[in-house]
Every structure is written in C-alpha cells, then in structure tokens.
Write a protein that binds this DNA or RNA. Structure first.
Lengths: 265, 265
DNA sequence: CAGTGGTCTAGACCACCAC
DNA sequence: TGGTGGTCTAGACCACTGC
C-alpha cells in the first residue's frame, strides 16, 4: 500500500534499531542505554544522528533522559481512565484520581500545589459563566504514580458555592469527596461534560510533569453540572499523552428510532 | 511559579519568535515563510538552528512543510467531535463523519480505500471476540476537510452479520447509515464504548494523513454493542492530534447516592 | 574530576519543486 | 536550473551528574 519511499534517513533507522532493542530486552530498564558517543562508535554515525534518534524515542515517551547521567527506558504502563467509573468510586476514598493508579498496582500520591480563593482565570470564568476575576475556589493538585508525575488537575468552584463548605479549603475534603460536599449544599452534580484536546506541553507543564518540551499532552476540561444546569465545578486535567487511555461509554438514547425499511420522513 | 531556568536555547527562542509572527499576522497564510537561509541570515543563527525551530512548530501542527517549495502556515481550525451527537445524526445522511466538518463551513469528502471481506486482524478479532482470521467486513475510509485529510476510519463488522446486508459492501450503505442496516438485521447498536489513546503516527498513517513522522495522533477504538451485548462493529479512528476536540457527556447514574452527612457504610 | 546529554556551527550533499 | 527543505558530519562548548 505504501508508496515507494526513498531509504529511510539514518536517524530513523537508528531510532528503529533502538526501539527494537528496547522491545526485545537487549537494554534493561535498570541500566542506562549506552552513551551517545558509544552508540556513535558502534553504529558508525555521528553523535548528532544518535541524538536525533533518541529524540524520536523521547517524543514517543519511550525513554527518559536524565541529563548528565544517562538515558533510561520509561517503564510506566498505560493507565486507563474510565470517565464514569472514576466518579462513581467517590464513596471509596478521597480523590477519584487514585483509583486507576491503584488498579495497576502502583502507588498513588497527591501533591497539593495550591488551595485557596483566587480570581477566576479567563478560561475558567468563561466555562463557569461568571465574570473574569470573580472569586473562585481553586484546588491545584499534582498526581503521581510511583513518584512519577502522571497528571495535573486544577479544580475550580464558584466562590459563592464553595464558601458554604469549609472542608473544601482543606486537603482532605472529607468523606465522599468534593462532589458530596457540593451535594450537601444543594449543588450535587448530576451531569458531566468533558472536552479532550491534544497539544504540546507548555514549559510549565513540561516541568511539572517532567516531560521534554514539545511532548504531547492530553488536555481535559471536565465540567460538573447541577440539577439546575449550573456549572458548579471545572476541572482542568493535563496528562502526558502516552501515559493514559481514556474510556467512555454511553447508551444510545435513540436506539428505537432507526428509520424503518420502508422509509419515512 | 516556574523555577529559574537557564536562558532558553536558541532554537526555542527562534520557535517562539516564529510562533509570535504567525499569531500576529506578520506571516500570511498564502505566502510561504521566509526560507531557512533567509531566516538564518536575518536572525544570525545557523540554518540548522532555524530548521530545528521549524521542527518544533511542525510537531505542534502549526506549519506544514512542502519540500522543495516552502513552509506554510496550517490554517485549519479545530473540529469538535461530539461522541453522542455524531451517531444521533444518522438520519441526516450517510456518514456520521461529515457532520462536524460541515458545521465549520468546510467541505467534507470521503475516500473509500477498501470495502470487502477480509480475515480479521488480531486487534479487531480480539475486540469482536472472534477468531483471528475469521472473516469480517472491512470498510476503510479516509476523510477530508477542504481536501486536507482529517481522519482515517476503519470499520469492521463480523461477516456472519454483515453478509445479511449487501448494501454494506457498497460505498453508499443507504438511508440511515450502517447502524440502521445492522438494526434491520436485529443487531441495532444500543450501547457504545470508546477508548482514546495518544501516540505518534506510524509511517503509513503519517503518509495518509499528510503528517510529519512523529506527530501525535488520536487513536479511538469505537465499539458498538447490540441488545444482546455482542460487539457488532469496531471502528478504528486515527486523527491528527492537533486537529480535533473530542466531546463527551453523561449523566451521573448515582447522583442520588451521595453519602449522607451523618454517614453510613 | 570525568562522563553524560544539550546545543551550536560551517560546510556539505541530496531530493524535490517550479520555472 | 536555481531555490527549497532534509540530512549528515566533525568539532566544539556548555551544564549537569556522580564520584
């Protein structure tokens, strides 16, 4: 099917070779890969070419470079995030984010970056349909699996709602999680929307997620709606693209409306 | 917030500069960007450095290089794909894929790459819970917006179902689309699941989608289940990562089960 | 300190494109 | 044929790491 292509560039070939060696276990996960000068000598290409090849693997999330130290295989398995289940699990613990990590036998950890009252950033204000700079409660968290950062999760709640539940200003928001607190205030979420985009990480995100610049991230805007159809919470999730698998499912509400064989308007 | 960083590398600075010039309209979408030697002379850095900067923009999907001709701004807006609505729109035309494109005022086009009876590929057989190499109907399509490829969509239906509806072997599967044909056979989908991952494009995909190698793609495995909970169709979608925005929404089925304030098991 | 990867340059050769 | 981008090399300097 593929058209005849000119022979691959050397750095692509080197990248394929290294990919193969990673896959078949030639290189172990404990040891660093051979150094760039070593590979350069072994394969008879310049160090630049080796470096370019390794950059290909980095972009694919296959290896991780620790500067001044060496290049290592990234041994983190993919985490499945089931949109429905993660919120249904609210009765089992504090954060919904821990469920998926534990399921893989990894150790989750949550770092609270910021919890407090701040002016709403433009994007958030827009979604919550409030004025820019109107006060909101923000909860910024960084989630880890086995001490590797796996996700940034910034949650915003309009202040006029949040002020009713002082627990929301604590790290541990208490039994059932923040949605339960919202429910107690009469704003329990009954509907959720998520918008998913893929983009390259910003510098800040790359730092916090320990990614190389330019690596793709998944950007999820999660909105919780209460029974009065008010947006009561926005959560912005940013996650390394190669690390996650998102799962959604739904019933077809119009399953009984297939056109009949004889046709009608 | 960001820690003190050493000054950025030159190619990053050049990339930022070019990004700025694209954003503020210094460079028009009709004209190619200045050539690499020109930029090299203007900015006083080597051509390699310019080239690297442009590669950053390519990975972000901001520009598109036509070899031997020039580098151009990619002016395609993001398309929103609403998982529920796209299937609900089945009564309006043939393909569900056209809806989103038209909504943006772009011209959709579908290219049928392959329609026929083939042995099930391993991944597909696994999902459909049939033997590898058991026969399936495949419909491979490539979707365009304004003649730019926006999506690969390969659909698989177990042959024992598909053979009941000869229309499924035609390009135009008829009124209501393929799900209506399945419904007529007693296998109308009532439930859907989608799994979304992000990865770098394979060579074949890069060619078909006119991407540069290494660019991230969104990979969606869409499964349609009938009332007997049998997987009656699998659709594999591959789309340029920067081109799409995925939208999902769902009601919380457990909204009335928030723990009460006084608590119980 | 020696070894690692990050980056930069000058120069070069090539494939591809439009004319 | 001349201009475009794709790639490669040798050599260099640097920041960072662990010892």
């Amino acid at each position: 099917m593929a058209a005849i292509q000119s022979p691959k560039s050397q750095y692509q070939q080197v990248a394929d070779l290294l990919r193969g060696r990673i896959a078949d276990g030639t290189y172990s996960a404990d040891q660093p890969l051979p150094s760039e000068p070593q590979l350069s000598a072994e394969l008879g290409v310049s160090r630049q070419t080796i470096n370019r090849a390794i950059n290909v693997l980095r972009n694919a999330g296959l290896v991780r470079v620790r500067r001044g130290f060496g290049t290592f295989i990234r041994g983190v398995p993919q985490v499945t995030r089931d949109a429905k289940k993660r919120y249904a699990a609210r009765n089992q613990g504090t954060g919904a984010g821990d469920v998926e990590i534990k399921a893989l036998g990894l150790t989750p950890r949550t770092e609270y970056v910021e919890i407090g009252r701040v002016p709403a950033p433009p994007g958030v204000a827009d979604v919550l349909r409030i004025e820019v700079d109107a006060p909101v409660l923000v909860r910024r968290r960084r989630l880890f699996a086995n001490d590797e950062p796996t996700q940034l999760a910034d949650s915003f709640i309009p202040w006029d709602i949040a002020e009713g539940a002082p627990e929301l200003l604590k790290r541990d928001v208490g039994r059932g999680g923040s949605y339960t607190r919202l429910a107690e205030l009469g704003h329990g979420p009954v509907r959720f929307t998520e918008e998913v985009t893929v983009r390259t990480a910003t510098e800040d995100e790359a730092q916090l997620l320990e990614l190389d610049g330019g690596q793709p991230v998944i950007d999820i805007t999660h909105i919780a709606w209460d029974a009065a159809d008010r947006a009561v919470e926005v959560a912005l999730h940013v996650m390394p693209g190669n690390l996650w698998r998102l799962r959604y499912d739904w019933d077809d509400p119009t399953a009984d409306e297939y056109p009949t064989a004889d046709g009608d308007a």
